[in-house]
Design a protein around this nucleic acid. Structure first.
Lengths: 119, 119
DNA sequence: CGTCTAGTTTGACAACTGTCTAAACAGAGT
DNA sequence: ACTCTGTTTAGACAGTTGTCAAACTAGACG
């Protein structure tokens, strides 16, 4: 499956405007990648480095899963455009792609909504 | 599967703090529910009503899928705590649960992060 | 070159998911 | 009570997913 390109959609919040078919498909891939506890924890481990990178070996150590499984999950996150990586020497380093996380965050943002509370 | 209770976790953004195992599991259920194009469009159709409710019949009309399939997706969204519903007479009305959407949105929020841009 | 370590890819398999048809359920109105 | 409409549930089936073990690739270092 091809990775999501840099031209991924940046949408107004859900509460403001209904999604088109195509846009929904792209965004859903992002959320789908987040829809696994292991991947969510991986992303949080990477993201909480605040701009720095994390070596795969550190990530693997944080789980009781095998190396290949971690590698698989990292690939899913990468193909969803949420993280990126680079090999330097023996080790591979991962970091988050803030713009993509922001796009998904904004979509779910209801803070500016005119929605009225329900009893 | 039991629906996610009202005491669902409300977390600081990913960039600030790594997730615990248990919290990740609950949050992942929310994202998993969003990880399907049909469900994302359903949610957007409901949410863009801005506090009002939507009848299932309207939702069904917006897709080429069968009624049972739409009903299934609505159930997934409901069990993830993202929407709620009520039957009034013949029709069933759905609305979003803003607090739950906000929690997921905040988790992905990187706007206040101290992350440095990468070259 | 040979080998060691870090990571990824491949292949297999059980479990889960999205979709459908058929059946069941809930009210409204005869 | 019967029926008609709107919605959900049950069951079935193809396709997808998460996991592991085994094989492979990339670079470092003798």
């Amino acid at each position: 499956m091809p990775a999501i390109p840099d031209t991924s959609p940046c949408c107004p919040p859900l509460v403001d405007e209904a999604l088109t078919d195509e846009t929904a498909a792209t965004l859903a891939r992002g959320f789908k990648a987040l829809g696994d506890p292991v991947r969510l924890r991986l992303l949080s481990l990477i993201a909480s480095r605040a701009g720095d990178e994390v070596c795969v070996c550190e990530l693997t150590d944080a789980f009781t899963l095998t190396g290949p499984t971690i590698s698989h999950h990292l690939k899913v996150l990468r193909e969803a455009g949420l993280i990126d990586c680079q090999r330097r020497g023996t080790w591979v380093y991962y970091w988050i792609v803030p713009a993509r996380l922001a796009a998904l965050s904004q979509l779910l943002d209801v803070s500016g909504a005119t929605a009225t509370a329900r009893p």
